[in-house]
């Protein structure tokens, strides 16, 4: 079941000028949401007449006790720029929950996130912890200022961090971090496509199932516009319905 409902903004936490976390209150009990699923958020209308389509954003966190969700948003264009101005008390209309979500498996798994792409990993860690699955989490970002929700990650997992400028953790990219050499039952990966491809290649070499979260532009998010397709071993598949989480070996060019 998908819902199209208004949420109320509880807070808008600015991480950097182009990165923010929206905490949103749902007026009733939240339906079950899987880690890796996403929402389509309405920007058009009173909020911004120049933005036409909704914007797909993954769940950063979900709290069933307070019926609040958190969305980590990076400003990439006029739609997300408009959203960055949302204030406490504003109403935002969301279609949710969308997409397939991560397949939970194994006893010891690695989570790899790059930049704002790390967003869905926080909620994934909560789910993995509930299932008593041991986790290592590797997050790469530009510099220490772009690091978000660190204490939450730390409370749920063994956290390893790389920064491009060395301002925190190891200097460099996640793809060269030694933690990758350990053995895992699965790897969960979200971030820029080159990083997804590099981690997928590594996982393939070590024969570890690797689940990647794709960020494709889409018009509807509910499977009807057919604009967000990805080339898979079984032909074109919709990222919004068959994904956004794919087993990397199912994807062509991965």
């Amino acid at each position: 079941m998908k819902y199209c409902k208004d949420f109320t903004v509880v807070s808008n936490e600015i991480i950097t000028p182009s990165l923010f976390i929206l905490r949103l209150q749902y007026p009733e009990a939240l339906p079950e949401i899987k880690a890796g699923q996403f929402v389509e958020i309405l920007v058009e209308g009173e909020r911004d007449k120049d933005v036409f389509l909704r914007r797909p954003i993954s769940f950063h966190d979900v709290n069933y006790e307070t019926n609040q969700i958190a969305l980590l948003v990076q400003v990439v264009g006029k739609g997300t720029a408009s959203l960055s101005k949302a204030k406490k008390g504003d109403k935002l209309n969301l279609i949710f929950p969308l997409g397939n979500g991560f397949t939970i498996m194994g006893k010891k798994v690695l989570l790899v996130g790059g930049g704002c792409g790390a967003a869905p990993l926080l909620y994934l860690l909560r789910i993995l912890k509930q299932q008593n699955i041991e986790t290592h989490t590797l997050i790469g970002c530009k510099d220490v200022n772009h690091l978000f929700s660190k204490s939450e990650y730390q409370s749920l997992s063994s956290l390893y961090i790389t920064t491009e400028d060395g301002s925190y953790g190891e200097k460099g990219f996640v793809t060269s971090h030694p933690i990758l050499q350990q053995t895992y039952d699965a790897i969960y990966c979200c971030g820029p496509t080159p990083m997804l491809k590099a981690i997928s290649k590594h996982a393939k070499e070590k024969n570890i199932p690797c689940f990647v979260s794709l960020e494709h532009s889409m018009a509807c998010g509910i499977g009807v516009c057919l604009c967000c397709v990805v080339d898979t071993q079984q032909g074109n598949k919709r990222t919004c319905v068959t994904g956004p989480i794919f087993l990397s070996t199912d994807l062509k060019d991965f």
Partner: peptide
């Protein structure tokens, strides 16, 4: 169908 990308948002509309 055609390869991705298949969609672009435009002023008051979209291309597919």
């Amino acid at each position: 169908g055609n390869p991705y990308p298949r969609m672009a948002e435009t002023p008051s509309g979209m291309l597919n």
